[in-house]
Amino acid sequence: MFRLQSSKVLAVDMTGDAVKAKNGSMVAYDGEMAFKKLSGGGEGLRGMVTRRLTGEQMTLMEVKGHGTCFFADRASEINLVGLRGETLYVESSNLLVTDGGLRTGTTFTGMRGASQGNGLFTTTIEGHGQAAIMSDGPALLLRVSAQYPLTVDPGAYVAHQGNLRQSFQSGVTFRTLMGEGGGEAFQIRFEGDGVVYVQPSERNTIAGDV
C-alpha cells in the first residue's frame, strides 16, 4: 500500500509482497526488509538487452518484506499514480517505485525524447497497482480530451497516461538562427484522451536556449 509520508517521502506498507524501486532510494524502514538488485529492471534477458540498446537505462531493486519502507530521492516531489490495467509512460529517471506486479518495458517515443535529451525511448508501466513518479516541484495533472489538445514544453514533461497521440512541433525559423527565437522552439502536442504530468520546472534541453 503506497502512501505519502510527506510530499517528498513515500511510505510503502508491505506484508510479504514486493515492490520495485529505484536503486538506492530507500531512506529508512522498519520491520524486516530484503533488498535485491534487479538486473535489467526485472524485465528478463530480452528487457536487459533492449534497455542496453535503447539507452533507457534503469537500475531497480526489489524490496520485499514485512513492515514499512520509506523512499525518497534528492528531495524530489513524489506523485502517486493508480493503474487499473492502463499504461503509464514515464521517463526512467522520473520513476521511483512501482508495485511488484506491474510490468515495465520500453517504448519508442520519437522526436520528443530527442528534444528532451532523454534519448529516443521511454519506460512503460502497465498492469494493476500503484506507481510513484518524481518531479521537480509538484507535478500538475493536465487533462487532454478531443476538444482540448495540449501542448507541452519537452523540458517540463514528466509522464503521460491514456490513449494519446503525440506530435512534435518545431518553431525553429530563420529568426531562431539569428538569436531572436521565441524561446519555445520545440513543443510536444498531445491529442486524444488522457492526462499528462507536467512539472513546474524545465530540465536542460537542447531547445533551452533557442
Partner: peptide
C-alpha cells in the same frame, strides 16, 4: 514573458522574439 518559462498550454499560442 522571459524566454523558456512556458511549461504547457491549451489552445493556440505563438511565441515570438521581441525582434519580430
Amino acid at each position: 514573458m522571459q524566454k523558456g518559462k512556458m511549461i504547457a498550454y491549451y489552445g493556440s499560442i505563438e511565441f515570438n522574439g521581441i525582434g519580430h
